[in-house]
Computed example of a mutant assay.
Amino acid sequence: MQEKWSHRADLAEAAITDRHARRVWGIPGTNLAVVGWPSTTKDELFFHWHYWWQAHYLDCQIDATKRRSTKKRKRRIKETMRGIRIRNLRGWTVNRYYDDKSWLALAVGRWLSSSKHKGLRALERNIYDGIDTLTGVLPWRTNETFYNVPTNGPAAIMMARAGRVDKARELTDWVFDHLINQDGLVMDGMRMRMHGPELVPVIHPYCQGVMMGACLEIADHLLSENSDEAYTYISRARELVDAVERHLASPEGILNTHTDGGDGGLFKGILARYLADVATRLPGDSSLSDNTRRKAARIVTASATSLWNRRVEIDGLPVFASNWTEDARVPSLSTSVGTIRGAVLGSTVPERDLSVQLSGWMLLEAAARVAAADL
Rank of each mutant, 00 (worst) to 15 (best):
L120N: 06
S102E: 03
R161H: 12
M81T: 11
L138F: 08
P139W: 07
M192N: 02
R161A: 07
L171W: 02
S69C: 04
N148G: 08
W140M: 10
W111S: 01
T151H: 02
R161F: 07
E198M: 12
M187F: 02
M190S: 04
W140H: 14
D100W: 06
T172M: 09
G163T: 06
H195V: 13
A168M: 06
T65W: 02
L134Y: 06
A122D: 15
G213V: 07
D129C: 04
P205H: 05
N88D: 09
P139F: 03
S102Q: 03
L134G: 02
H117G: 00
T93F: 04
I77Q: 01
V94W: 10
R169M: 15
V175E: 13
K167D: 15
G184Q: 05
L199F: 08
D100Y: 06
D177N: 14
W92T: 12
D173R: 12
R90E: 11
S102N: 02
V165T: 13
R68A: 00
N152F: 04
L179Y: 03
G196M: 06
M187Y: 01
P150A: 08
G184P: 02
V210Q: 13
D132C: 11
G153E: 07
E144Q: 09
K101V: 01
G163E: 05
R67V: 00
V200Y: 09
R96F: 08
M192L: 15
G189A: 11
H117S: 11
R96C: 10
R73Y: 00
P139Q: 03
R110E: 14
F176S: 10
Y128P: 00
P205V: 04
R73E: 00
Y98A: 04
A162S: 15
R193P: 02
K118W: 07
D177A: 14
I77M: 02
G189E: 10
A156H: 01
R85H: 04
I84A: 03
L89C: 05
A168Q: 04
M211L: 15
S69Y: 00
M192T: 01
D183Y: 11
A122Y: 02
N143W: 10
D188S: 04
V202A: 14
F146P: 00
M187V: 09
T65V: 03
T93L: 05
H117F: 09
Y98S: 09
M187E: 12
A160R: 08
D99L: 11
R191N: 12
H178K: 13
P197G: 14
M192S: 03
R110I: 02
R169E: 15
M159E: 11
L199A: 12
Y147G: 11
L138K: 09
K118P: 00
